[in-house]
């Protein structure tokens, strides 16, 4: 893609790129170039399905995306603050390490796969296989909060981290699909409302919130509200239930030596 295709404007530490019709490799190359030049805030306009935005970027740059970014937004990233003023597609925050992604809309499948840190906020619904194998270590605890509902396999294989589902929005379908927390062996899932036992994976149980949990949920709700600009004040931590694994070694007895 020729230079002219990417119209860019850089004033001081802020820059704007017109992404319409630009191939992802070109677009991401430009974003990297701007970051290398010391740019602290980048606005991408006219984004329409470009993949891999901010992948592997280890800088605390702010990226505002106007339009729908493609798959693997923020994969392996370690630090950026991304705001999407639209829906997002699959694999957002794939194996992400640090930073924050705020999606003002719905997002697709496999969000936060293997996520190791940072936060992913989605105001709408999320798809299937969200939060699979998130993990945490000491103070590095990844968090996903979704304002809507989730599909099947929410929190599968989870080894650490926090998932929060608010279940807002139209319709009366269940807040999450089946196989909730299957193979889960660490971390916690907080959901507003209830789920039937048949939806639960075999490795998790439902617990009531302790004082500590309520504080955690209240703090995340406050942050979620501040970031998304949506009023969640009517949501109370008391409405939540908690899913946790009852064993750190769910498959420990499966083998004979």
């Amino acid at each position: 893609m020729a230079d002219a295709a990417v119209k860019k404007k850089m004033e001081g530490e802020a820059a704007e790129l017109d992404a319409a019709g630009v191939h992802y490799r070109e677009l991401n190359g430009r974003v990297r170039e701007l970051i290398d030049k010391g740019c602290k805030e980048i606005v991408l306009n006219g984004v329409n399905g470009q993949r891999y935005i901010a992948d592997g970027i280890a800088s605390e740059v702010k990226i505002v995306i106007n339009g729908v970014p493609g798959n693997d937004l923020g994969a392996f990233m370690s630090g950026p603050h991304i705001i999407v003023n639209d829906n997002a597609q699959d694999c957002v925050g794939n194996t992400m390490n640090a930073g924050k992604i705020i999606i003002k809309g719905h997002a697709g499948d496999v969000l936060g796969y293997g996520m190791r840190g940072g936060k992913l906020f989605v105001t709408g619904d999320v798809g299937y296989r969200v939060g699979i194998h998130m993990k945490s270590y000491k103070k590095q605890v990844p968090v996903i909060v979704a304002g809507g509902r989730a599909g099947d396999f929410f929190g599968e294989y989870m080894a650490g981290g926090i998932l929060v589902l608010l279940g807002m929005g139209e319709g009366d379908r269940p807040i999450a699909g089946s196989y909730l927390g299957t193979g889960m062996h660490g971390g916690a899932i907080y959901m507003r409302g209830s789920v039937s036992d048949s939806q639960l994976g075999r490795e998790v149980r439902v617990f009531d919130l302790e004082e500590e949990d309520r504080k955690l949920v209240a703090g995340l709700l406050e942050e979620f509200q501040a970031d998304t600009g949506i009023d969640y004040s009517k949501i109370k931590p008391a409405e939540f239930m908690k899913l946790c694994p009852f064993s750190h070694r769910p498959y420990g007895n499966m083998y004979v030596y």
């Binding site: 993949r51 693997d72 190791r116 062996h185 498959y251």
Partner: peptide, 30 residues
């Protein structure tokens, strides 16, 4: 590995972001 001491380290059978050749291509390019 970023998992607590003494837990089993579970590697899922598939990569859950790869269910097809197209998905593999996606991870390769990511």
């Amino acid at each position: 590995r970023m998992i607590p001491v003494g837990t089993d380290a579970l590697s899922p059978a598939p990569h859950h972001d790869i269910y097809s050749i197209e998905d593999l291509r996606q991870l390769i390019y990511a």
